[in-house]
Every structure is written in C-alpha cells, then in structure tokens.
Nucleic acid binder design. Structure first.
Length: 263
DNA sequence: CACGTTGTTCTTCC
DNA sequence: TGGAAGAACAACGT
C-alpha cells in the first residue's frame, strides 16, 4: 500500500511530530527488519540523539539523526509510523520499533506483514545508489519523463512501477495515473502517440500531488478517480462502463475499457 | 486452507 | 550485453 503519496504523508507526520526531541529509548522488537547493522547498534545509535530532518525518495522515508546519519524507513506493504502522545495507551499492534522521547511521547514503526525495512545510510543519496533507485517520480520533470519513454521498452505500467526507472509509483497509483491519462495499462511504450505521452506526463505529477493533498486517503479522492472503485463490481466513474479487471505486469489491474481502449 | 495481496530480488530470456 | 519479463518470496487476513 504505501506508495509515494502515502510515504509523503508519513514524512510530514514525522517532520511535524518527531523532530528536535531528545530520544531516551529505542526498542527494536523485530531485529529481522533491520539491515546493514545489528538491531542493537541501531538502538544505541539513536539513543541520546534527536531527529533533525526528513527526506523522501520514492517509497523511502529518511530521517536524519543528529548531524550525520540518516535512518531509512521502508514500509513494505502494510507499514506506517504512528506518533503516540505521552499518555497514549498500549503500544499499537505490530510495532516493530518503538522510539521514546524525553517528554514521554513515542514514535512507533508498525509493520503488520514485515515487508518493510529499517536501515542506516550516511546520505540519502547512498540509499538511492545502493538500491539502484531512479529519480523520484515527483522530481522527474517533463524532460525526465520524456527521456524515460524514449529509453525504455515494454508495457507503460511496468515502466511506471519500475523503481529503477522512476521511484515511488506502485500498483495502485500506476492504475490511477493511467486511468486519468486515459491510457490502457498494457500499452507498449513504443505504441504511445504524442497525445498519450503528454497526458501521462501531465497526469503523473497531478495525481500524485492531489493524492498527497488528500492525505493519500482514497475516501477523499475525487469521485472521478479510479481507486475508490477498485475491487468492486463497479462502473467507470466517468462514463459508466463496467470497469475491467485483469493482470498486467504481474499485478492486479483495473481500467475502463471505454476510456482506456487497447491500442 | 488456499488464495490474494505488494514491493523487491532473483532468474531467465531475447 | 543489458534491459525486460516472469517467478519467487516475504507474512498474514480471509
């Protein structure tokens, strides 16, 4: 679930609620989610420090510790950060790391299915190079996207989900961008005409930014968007045609057969 | 209880 | 050769 817009919301949550407070205790309850260093060392590295800055690249959220290291958080399929007030009740379910601040407040990293990851890097760019991530999908720019379409082959949905090409778009938002751009998900890049390329280029940042504005919460999405209608026996919110469902790029895919015709 | 789910990594292939 | 496609995998709710 957590794709670029979700992680952008997470980042904002951490930036607003977790910076500049002294960390008194860190408890990693699932060492298997930590990579690159022992969980015990992650704990000791954080303790006594403060979070000072945040950054996001694709689906990764980075939080600076003091004035050097960056803690990298990936949320896999079911992860999220949860800020708890000092008097907040029991630790939430599936908490894999719990950071306690000196005022008693806490930051819980939760991850039900444990597909997330916690790691450390010297610089955000190190994470990008280590993981071979492409440019963040929101910092691509028009040329960046056009260049990608020129350089890559295959289905357009595969390109958008390829984190080495552009970072941040996953299954849900790939479908949403394609729906808004009125391009069939299985279209080969080489078959896209100029108008389709322009619509994709325009809709990619528009959809992502609008999703962030709405807190990545599908119930707040425009009624004309696809996502709120996924997984139901639903109709296209634009033209009323029955939505179609299938597998594209190995993933469950929804589209409108009327507005997004196969080429 | 097999299935569906998602992002990533590994393998295969052209 | 390198990029693309496909399979495998992780854990868990249904």
């Amino acid at each position: 679930m957590p794709e670029l817009p979700d992680v952008a919301v997470f980042e904002r949550r951490i930036a607003k609620g977790a910076l500049d407070r002294r960390i008194t205790d860190v408890d990693v309850s699932d060492a298997g989610m930590v990579t690159g260093l022992p969980a015990s060392r992650l704990e000791s590295t954080l303790e006594g420090q403060r979070f000072t800055d945040t950054h996001r690249h694709g689906k990764w959220c980075l939080v600076q510790v003091g004035d050097e290291d960056w803690l990298g958080l990936h949320f896999g399929m079911t992860g999220l950060p949860d800020l708890l007030a000092a008097d907040d009740e029991p630790v939430p379910e599936h908490t894999r790391m719990l950071v306690t601040f000196d005022d008693g407040g806490r930051l819980a990293y939760r991850c039900q299915r444990r597909f997330g990851e916690l790691t450390f890097v010297d610089e955000p760019d190190d994470l990008v190079s280590d993981r071979d991530l492409g440019p963040d999908a929101l910092r691509l720019g028009d040329d960046g996207f056009a260049d990608l379409l020129d350089a890559r082959r295959g289905a357009v949905k595969s390109l958008m989900m390829n984190q080495s090409a552009m970072a941040g778009v996953g299954n849900i938002y790939a479908d949403e961008v394609l729906f808004n751009a009125r391009v069939h998900p299985g279209t080969a890049i080489s078959d896209l005409d100029e108008r389709e390329r322009r619509r994709l280029r325009n809709q990619l940042p528009r959809v992502l930014e609008m999703a962030i504005d709405r807190q990545a919460d599908p119930t707040r999405f425009p009624r004309t968007w696809l996502t709120p209608h996924r997984g139901e026996d639903d109709e296209c919110p634009r033209c009323g045609a029955p939505l179609q469902h299938g597998t594209v790029a190995q993933r469950s895919t929804w589209w409108c057969p009327q507005d997004q015709p196969e080429s």
